[in-house]
Design a binder for these strands. Sequence first.
RNA 1: GGAGGUAUAGUCUAAUGGUAGGACGUCACCUUUACACGGUGAAGACCUGGGUUCGAUUCCCUGUACCUCCACCA
Length: 783
Amino acid sequence: MDDKYITKEVEQKIREYWKVNEINKFKKDGKPIFAIDTPPPTVSGFLHVGHVFSYSQADFVARYKRMKGYDVFYPFGLDNNGLPTEILVEKKNNVLSEKVGREKFIELVENSIKEYEELYINIWKTIGISVDWSHLYTTISKDVQHISQYSFIELYKMNRAYRKETPTIWCTKCKTALSQMELKDKTLKSKFVKVKFADDVIIATTRPELLPACVIIFVNPDDEKNAKLVGRKVKVPIFGQEVEIKTDKRVNPEKGTGIVMSCTFGDLTDIEWYKAYNLPLRVIIDEKANMTHPHFKDMKVRDARKAIIEELKEKNLLLEEKDIEHTVNVHERCDTEIEFLVKKQWYIKYLDLKEKLIELGNQLNWKPEYMKVRYENWVNGLQWDWSISRQRYYGIPFPVWYCKKCNEPVLAEKEDLPVNPLNDKPKKPCKNCGSTEIIPEEDVLDTWATSSLTPLINKKWSLDTEIKYDIYPMSLRPQAHDIISFWLFTTIVKCYLHTGKLPWKDVMISGHGLDATGKPMHKSVGNIVEPMPIIEKYGADALRYWASSSKLGDEALFQEKDLVTGSRIVNKLWNVAKFTSKINSDTKEVSNLLDKWILSKLNDTVKKATEMFEQYNYAGAKREIEAFFWDVTDNYMEYIKHRVYNNIESPGYVLNKVFLSIIKLFAPYMPYVTEEIYQNLYKTQENKNSIHLSDWPVFEEKTFDKKAFEDGENISRLIKYIRAWKHDNKLALNAEVKEVIIEGEINKEYLNDIKGVMKINEITLGKATLEVAETPFKVTINV
RNA sequence: GGAGGUAUAGUCUAAUGGUAGGACGUCACCUUUACACGGUGAAGACCUGGGUUCGAUUCCCUGUACCUCCACCA
């Protein structure tokens, strides 16, 4: 064995070995299948160690299950069907998607992000994620387009997908409809003005430019001071339309004057009111944030606001003008304030399924369990059906045209998928009126409408190549907690609608890897830690070690010192391997009590670690394994040295057995160093190609000796006590001691070991003075 | 505003109804034939207030701080 373990060289070599020997291949060999629904990372141009954090955690489980004898189906996806990728490609090629056209742009994406995909895949491979790369998908690929469109057609046929003209959250910069999920808060400076509608009807608003769209006025039903207004009609200043004053509990009587005007549409509440009271629609803003009302000819929304404030002032209708900072919803990508427009949109109907969805959530095995509440809160809070139309150029198109004559949707035939309605034509005329004149749907599907299908994408559902093996429902969905309400939820919805089943048995919810100060890593914040330089310096095993130290669901701060700990263990493992390899291990008989002690302790560790791993508690398992490992190196190995050097009762067999188990237990976390040691020391005897295909250690009744386990702990404490005594008395650890007197019941078989380990000339049993804590012993030491 | 989570040494963390284990850092000692990316030892911590209890860091309540998700933001 080499004297030094050079991380970089070994890891590269091992990686190549795994590839050639197809260690991670889904074998379809009849063993029970463990299928993992890996999250497809968004291709946005960069990855950070936070990504490594959560993917490593899933890989610990994958590797554990493989060693437990499962045929692990571990596919991978890349999400390139979304705004981040679109922006990346636009920047890189200096084009705009809408100028290029959909089909061409998709092609451009597929071509120009190859290098990023390779970069990504290279990082995952370097980290040692044990994915079977022959099952790679990308979400904009033809196959996935096929699956996604197929899903839409199915949903349409079961009356789950419907099209309706409704108010939509709209980004006037990106010129697309958004879902609530794509919004974030932003604090902006604005004017809060009080406008006089009548002497006793004063309305405070931040959006006076919406006065022409005012359709109704509300006060709170419990608001006594404004109760007298209810039922009255007032004229809107300047614009003159008459509106009624009604009550609604959504009004906060404490805010402003307690009187609210509802305009179609200023905010989400306006939309709720519009729906609840069937209000008239007055659209005065267009898709590009231009005012369409003649009063504000050619003005942008912001300019109109200034103009109307001036006009109200002139006409003495403005009672108060206050500068405020308030939070508004903006599009998370471009920071533009959103508006509400009325558009025809496709929806998926699911409000009627709430109860069923809760029930499905209960059937799912949540790790950690408390994450389930977030799902339940989300489902209980659902108010609208799922809007799946996006007015973007880039994305998976709806497989739909509309009949020019009767407006009836004309769906694509399944055998023609995927289709692009902008270029393709339906094979059949309109079912309703027989016309062949059609208008293509221009919208694309929301990316969640596609990524919610990953379990079915993995199965290649609806394709000729559909996997016939039993991988659905899948065994495990690993994902982070921030997207429980999107990805996890939408996947349950869609997979339930398509298959009538939950998509997986277990979910494992990870936290985030944060920067050293506890902030999420963002390119814009500039706190990204890239994985490759870290791996270069400390090795992939050390980085994975960091990911293993925080328990499932918890966030972890990234601090470089944590990698020092990991690389120390790697180094230690290597050195133990060197020591172990030199010791004669011919004798298979175990007679020494300290040998029995360490074997029993190993059994105990195996039992605990396995139980924890079964519960996805990789962090707890690692702690057990690590504690045992350090006990072996700091103590057991010191205890046996005198036997090794003097060639008595060789502990080689036991040490090898213990060490082989240790590297197996560590293998899911640190796959490289454990593999390298395995190849050097144990491959031949075990006759397995890789440690990752070897068997996970099991608890052995026959080598577990409870008495030796407990006695050994006491002897170990006794030795450590003498060690500390030597230190306190300024003696070297290998200094000779004339005599040690031990008081307390002790098996004489231990005496030779104690003498040998501590270089004691004579041990006598009898009255002693120094109490050894947590043991039945007292000792007296004479130098 | 609602829901959930977290609060332990300088830092990161673990366990526990009887005052707490580990890692990094710090200090002291040791050049002991696997390892100075080493060994041995030392110093150093349970957010506030209340309750249950013989006894709470641990259980319950309250407050505070931080994090996450959701809602609101006229």
